[in-house]
């Protein structure tokens, strides 16, 4: 695995978050005087499993919107390629707003835990999101999805779309690289009025719009942006807004 390539940034984050997690557990136990089982600060058999999900933006010029991180069973999906996007996915992919997607996930019986990222993730930057799940869900079929908008695009998103997690020992980590998708809900005009990200500063920068005017109302792998530097009339994007696969790296660590 490629942790060595990234030692300066993320490994420090792992350790720091792990310390915070243990501190929180200690505090919780101290506040429960009627809990006789007070020797399990480092107990692998506590009632919950905690995962740290570190999201890294691998692009040159595409900030990520606040991510949606969802742990779920093997059959739940935020989207299916070749099928129309839900309005919740469209809302994330066109405007970077993850609220509807997370609200729908919260209501789904196959979803075991979910969280929003803390904010946008700049190109090259990483962020760690911590999620605690009931332990019963750490079993075959446990899967993770991570979704974020590429904000200097019409309706592009980077997504890990329901990858299966084998049972992880404490401290064991898994690394994934993620593809980018086109939600198929908005024409890829690349104009100053239809892209919500900073590349369209000064324009209308529209986010979500319920109209579906892409060539096909279906989620596909993203073909990338064309940009004005590559001859697209009307595009506000420049060469640095192009990207390639993979667009995102996701590391999942079980910390407790």
């Amino acid at each position: 695995m490629n942790r060595k390539a990234n030692l300066t940034g993320t490994s420090g984050v792992y350790r720091w978050s792990a310390i915070l997690g243990i501190t929180a557990l200690t505090t919780l136990l101290a506040g429960c005087p009627f809990d006789g089982d007070n020797d399990n600060v480092n107990d692998n058999n506590s009632d919950t499993d905690t995962f740290e999900v570190t999201i890294t933006n691998l692009t040159a010029g595409q900030p990520f919107s606040p991510a949606a991180v969802i742990f779920h069973g093997q059959h739940w999906r935020a989207f299916t390629t070749g099928e129309p996007a839900s309005v919740a996915l469209e809302t994330l992919a066109e405007g970077g707003n993850n609220a509807s997607l997370l609200a729908e996930a919260a209501d789904a019986s196959q979803v075991y835990g979910h969280a929003s990222g803390h904010g946008p993730i700049a190109p090259g930057a990483s962020e760690t999101v911590t999620i605690t799940l009931p332990e019963a869900h750490n079993r075959d079929g446990l899967s993770v999805s991570v979704l974020t908008m590429l904000v200097n695009s019409n309706d592009g998103l980077a997504a890990l779309n329901g990858v299966s997690l084998p049972a992880l020992e404490e401290r064991q980590s898994l690394h994934f690289t993620a593809l980018s998708y086109d939600s198929g809900t908005e024409a890829n005009t690349e104009t100053v009025d239809t892209i919500p990200g900073p590349a369209a500063s000064g324009g209308a920068q529209e986010g979500f719009n319920p109209v579906r005017d892409d060539v096909r109302d279906a989620v596909a792998l993203h073909g990338g942006v064309v940009t004005q530097d590559d001859g697209m009339t009307g595009s506000v994007l420049r060469a640095q807004h192009r990207w390639d696969h993979p667009a995102m790296r996701v590391t999942v660590v079980r910390t407790d």
């Binding site: 792998l221 073909g223 697209m232």
Partner: peptide, 20 residues
């Protein structure tokens, strides 16, 4: 992005892909 002229008959906004 020119359907009737230009260097290519392929549509840059529709037919490009990124592997896979």
């Amino acid at each position: 992005s020119d359907n009737g002229a230009g260097p290519s008959d392929i549509d840059s906004g529709l037919h490009r892909w990124l592997n896979p």
